[in-house]
C-alpha cells in the first residue's frame, strides 16, 4: 500500500453560502500529523471528509486511493475518534467497545478479545465495567480512542482528543500516540491547543478559515517565514557586553537590553545559533539561559494568520 494514505486534491466543502474547507491540497503519510487551527478553521470538516461522513463539494478526497464517502472498504483501514462527547450512556465501557467491535464484523469471541486488548491499551481495564454515564471526561476520551483502535487500523483520526484530560492522562495519551506512530500508523490529530501539539509532533497542517495556510515540519515552516524576524531572549548579567558583540554580526537585526538580559532579532536563526557558543567561548561571556519565544507553534500561528 502507498505511504500516501490520505490525499486531498483541491478539496472544498461548502455549507450553503458558508465555506467549510477551501481548495485544500495535502497528503498525510505515516507518523503523527497535527491538524491545527482555531475553532471554525475547518478541522472537523476535513476530518469528516476523510472519514466519509461528508463529500467534497469540489475537488477530491482519497484514502488509500479510494473515495471514503460511505465506503466500507476505507473504514476497514480507518479508526475515528470523533470530537463529540456522545455515547450509548446506558452501556458500560466494555459493552460499548464490544458492540462496535461486533459492528466491525468480528465474531463474539474475537470481539471480546479485541475489546479487552484495546481497553487495556488505553488504561481503562479497571473501570470499563461501569456505565459510561458515570465516566469522567478523561475516561470518555480513552474509551473513544479504544473504539478507534478496534480494527488495528493503519489510519487513526483523532478530533480534539486531549480535551478534558488531566496533565498525567495527556502525557499517557501522547505517549500512546507515539507508540502507535512508531508502529507505522498514520495518525492525524486535530487540535486548537498549540502547546499540546508541540508535544505530539513537528509535522503540521495549519488551517485558517477553511484554507491550508502551511504544511510540513514545524521548524521548516518557521524558517520559511523569513519576513518575520526570529527573536532570541538571553538571560545574562553582562547584557551590554554581549549586545556589543552581537550587533557586529551581519544577520542580527536589532538588540534590546531588557531587565534580566537582552532580546535580539535575527533573520537567520540557524547561523545565529551556530555562532553564539563560539562567541561565548572566545570572549569569555557569561550566559545563564537563552530561548526563543518564536520556537513554539503559537507564534508561528500568529504570524501566519497575521494577528
Amino acid at each position: 500500500m502507498s505511504d500516501l494514505r490520505i490525499q486531498l486534491t483541491e478539496a472544498s466543502r461548502w455549507y450553503g453560502q458558508v465555506i467549510g474547507l477551501n481548495d485544500v491540497s495535502c497528503t498525510v503519510g505515516p507518523g503523527v500529523t497535527a491538524l491545527l487551527g482555531m475553532n471554525g478553521a475547518g478541522k472537523s470538516t476535513m476530518m469528516r471528509l476523510i472519514t466519509g461522513q461528508l463529500r467534497p463539494t469540489t475537488g477530491d478526497v482519497r484514502v488509500y486511493g479510494h473515495a471514503p464517502f460511505a465506503n466500507p472498504e476505507v473504514f476497514r483501514h480507518l479508526g475515528y475518534c470523533p470530537e463529540i462527547d456522545n455515547f450509548y450512556e446506558h452501556m458500560t465501557g466494555r459493552r460499548f467497545v464490544y458492540h462496535l467491535a461486533r459492528l466491525n464484523g468480528f465474531d463474539h469471541a474475537k470481539a471480546r478479545r479485541r475489546a479487552d486488548e484495546v481497553i487495556e491499551a488505553v488504561g481503562m481495564s479497571d473501570r470499563c465495567d461501569r456505565k459510561i454515564a458515570g465516566y469522567s471526561k478523561g475516561m470518555r476520551q480513552r474509551i473513544k480512542l479504544a473504539q478507534a483502535m478496534l480494527n488495528d487500523p493503519d489510519i487513526i483520526l483523532l478530533d480534539e482528543p486531549l480535551n478534558g484530560l488531566d496533565p498525567v492522562a495527556r502525557r499517557e495519551y501522547i505517549d500512546l500516540l507515539h507508540r502507535l506512530a512508531e508502529s507505522g500508523k498514520t495518525i492525524l490529530v486535530s487540535s486548537h491547543i498549540l502547546h499540546e501539539v508541540e508535544q505530539m509532533t513537528r509535522s503540521i497542517l495549519l488551517l485558517h478559515r477553511g484554507r491550508l495556510l502551511a504544511s510540513g515540519d514545524l521548524k521548516v515552516i518557521r524558517e520559511l517565514l523569513d519576513k518575520y524576524p526570529h527573536r532570541v531572549r538571553i538571560q545574562t548579567d553582562q547584557p551590554r557586553e554581549i549586545a556589543q558583540e552581537l550587533v557586529a554580526l551581519p544577520y542580527v537585526l536589532s538588540v534590546q537590553v531588557t531587565r534580566d538580559g537582552l532580546e535580539l532579532q535575527t533573520r537567520e536563526p540557524s547561523r545565529f545559533y551556530d555562532a553564539l557558543p563560539v562567541l561565548v567561548l572566545e570572549k569569555g561571556l557569561h550566559i545563564r539561559e537563552f530561548h526563543s519565544p518564536d520556537n513554539n507553534l503559537e507564534s508561528i500561528f500568529r504570524y501566519l494568520v497575521n494577528e
Partner: peptide
C-alpha cells in the same frame, strides 16, 4: 439527534 450515528457511519457496514 444523539450524534451517536457517527459510530455507525464509520463502521465497515454498507449503509
Amino acid at each position: 439527534e444523539q450524534k451517536t450515528i457517527v459510530y455507525l457511519l464509520t463502521r465497515p457496514i454498507p449503509r
